[in-house]
Design a protein around this nucleic acid. Structure first.
Lengths: 173, 173
DNA sequence: GGATGCATGTAAAATGTTACATGATTTA
DNA sequence: TAAATCATGTAACATTTTACATGCATCC
């Protein structure tokens, strides 16, 4: 069947992920969204204030998010939640096959495409160090969901296996 | 040993990759660089003119690239090559362990972190469709190096395996 | 009570996307 | 020779980073 009418403009990855985070929380502040991004294991989502606050403001202006002001002690804060349109947009984003299928960006994959620029031993050593670093230093996403940690480990180990298999193929020439 | 003195500012992924592409070619036009990006299997590097031309201009201004004007028929074009500084910067980028270790961005990984927002059958069906799409529709990088196609296939199959293993874990709860 | 970090942002600058413009060359 | 596409960009706009600003709360 055809995609039926998608939301006029579809969401970017950052937008979709932001909606999913807010949906998971039910309702939350931009600060909480930032925290999720900052605690994610990827280096690509900085969760910088200058990215998140304007993004959420845009989504509200489009009617995808709704907000409530709240007073906590002496401080005011703004809670956001999905509107009905927001729910639809999130659903579309979650179910969009083409974008979910994309293989994304992986810095080691990129570097391996230029394997011939390394010396043979150099490449080996580099990959070994990088995979060690990954296993030791890339923290699982901080979350109360224990499955996330498990799936993170699965992801890392498959990534390592892929890199090592590629290394073998490159050596055999 | 300490990193000794890195190049003052290190290269972004886009910059490093651009240098590697130019280095591989020996010397080439921005158009050729764009073509490599557009023929790469990832959706994240558009290779849009507005990204590449200014980027290369910046790198030249920094002294990392050198240029030569050339007349071909009635057309003028500019060829770029690495300077000595450029070679050093590329080497640093290729050998930087921390950035090579980063797990990057993967749209399916992102979506799986929100697995609880899908119905059980829905998630299954979605993942199946996406992996089918990936295998059928994501083209290997166009290149004269046959190894790239092979390593591309290896990458895809490991990615598929990771996603399917995660799916299993999520089902078992 | 001073330092550190939490929570809330804004502003300027860099970067990247989208859309346009233009002429040359190839192909149908 | 008309259409396509190659090759070269530029301009306006959108997004993101970096850096700053501010006040509250906590800990040392």
């Amino acid at each position: 069947m055809p995609q039926s009418k998608q939301c006029a403009e579809s969401l970017s990855e950052l937008e979709g992920t932001t909606l999913a985070i807010i949906k998971e929380a039910g309702e939350c502040t931009p600060y909480v969204v930032r925290d999720v991004f900052r605690n994610s294991p990827t280096e690509n989502w900085s969760g910088s204030a200058g990215a998140i606050y304007p993004l959420i403001a845009r989504l509200e202006k489009k009617g995808i998010l709704l907000s409530t002001e709240e007073q906590v002690g002496k401080r005011k804060r703004t809670l956001y939640r999905l509107s009905a349109d927001g729910e639809k947009a999130l659903k579309n984003w979650l179910l969009d096959v083409k974008s979910g299928a994309g293989i994304g960006l992986d810095p080691m994959r990129t570097r391996l495409a230029f394997a011939d620029m390394y010396g043979a031993d150099e490449l080996h050593e580099y990959v070994r160090q990088a995979m060690d670093y990954m296993m030791a230093e890339i923290p699982p996403p901080k979350s109360d969901n224990p499955l996330l940690e498990k799936t993170h480990q699965i992801w890392l180990s498959h990534r390592k296996a892929a890199v090592e298999e590629i290394l073998l193929v490159l050596e055999r020439g």
